[in-house]
Write a protein that binds this DNA or RNA. Structure first.
Length: 295
DNA sequence: GTCTATGATTAAAG
DNA sequence: CTTTAATCATAGAC
């Protein structure tokens, strides 16, 4: 029941933003301290170890962040350089994780504080009662143990909920399929330019991929994905891509013409134009060449 | 809401 | 490792 409250909070965090912290403390100061029926709680617990390990691995518990994901994001940001980058999403993810972490720690601290406060409270009560009836140290010890057990079971719920929240966050942010963003226009243009100007063999080398990735502000594997998709989709329906193919062929031809015009301008500035008509025919050459690839 | 385009993931093959 | 082909899940257009 309490766990649900915590979980809900994390759900909220994941979906929208940070909700106010739950007034958990209020729930603790009215529990009936039944002396019987508490011995069945398990102190060793394999599950709590699992939770602890996961929280540690995710960087929620343990020392102040740092870790690989931050370094990876920083590297991505450095490599990307250009604005609309995927590192934005990454930092978003990290921010959410930090929020979860913050909630987790503040809750944990609250529990610890509440635990000691409550223990003190009970001790005082017992001390008062000891004036009217004898209370053995063993009884006090037992009381304290009961309280601690109660609180640690609640801590476990917190850990469970935190784990859940992290899992949800991961699936939401790290599963890129969910957060698919189209590449920006310029990136697509660069990729298409390369693709259609290497239509006979559209398999960029590792170096070429790296350069394209740099130019487009995406990763090398994204370039690979793009070319993989492009090849298969082009092959599947060449007709659909004909227009695009022409467009890019003309574009590169025009670029080439411009370059050659610039070069020739130094030599003979008498023939600057008539480059476009030429370029269309050269584009056809480019498109008709890869018969092997088309079939 | 549907429909298409598109980036990512997967299995299988090399 | 790479690739293809199929598929998933979403973005964006309508």
């Amino acid at each position: 029941m309490l766990g649900q409250t915590v979980t809900k909070t994390f759900f909220k965090l994941v979906n929208v933003d940070l909700a106010c912290l739950i007034p958990i403390l209020s729930l603790f100061f009215c529990p009936v301290l039944s002396i019987r029926g508490v011995q069945e709680e398990d102190p060793p617990d394999p599950q709590i170890m699992r939770l602890d390990n996961m929280l540690l691995a995710e960087g929620v518990s343990g020392p102040e962040k740092g870790g690989g994901s931050a370094a990876a994001a920083a590297a991505a940001a450095a490599a990307g350089g250009s604005p609309t980058d995927s590192s934005i999403e990454h930092s978003d993810y990290r921010a959410k994780l930090a929020q979860i972490r913050q909630i987790y720690h503040s809750e944990l601290e609250k529990y610890e504080q509440a635990c000691s406060e409550f223990t003190n409270h009970v001790m005082n009560l017992l001390r008062e009662q000891s004036r009217t009836r004898p209370i053995s140290p063993k009884e006090i010890e037992r009381m304290v143990a009961i309280i601690h057990r109660k609180f640690s079971s609640i801590q476990m719920q917190l850990k469970q909920s935190t784990c859940e929240a992290v899992m949800i966050l991961r699936s939401r942010f790290l599963d890129a399929r969910r957060k698919r963003r189209n590449f920006n226009k310029q990136a697509t243009e660069v990729l298409n330019e390369y693709f259609y100007s290497h239509l006979s063999n559209p398999y960029p080398s590792e170096e070429a991929k790296e350069e394209l990735a740099k130019k487009c502000g995406i990763t090398v594997s994204q370039v690979s994905n793009w070319f993989g998709n492009k090849r298969i989709r082009y092959k599947k329906n060449i007709g659909k891509f004909q227009e695009e193919a022409n467009l890019y062929a003309v574009k590169t031809a025009v670029d080439a013409a411009n370059v050659s015009a610039q070069a020739s301008q130094a030599n003979s500035p008498a023939t600057p134009n008539s480059g476009t008509t030429c370029s269309i025919s050269s584009s056809h050459n480019c498109l008709l060449q890869p018969t092997q690839y088309i079939q």
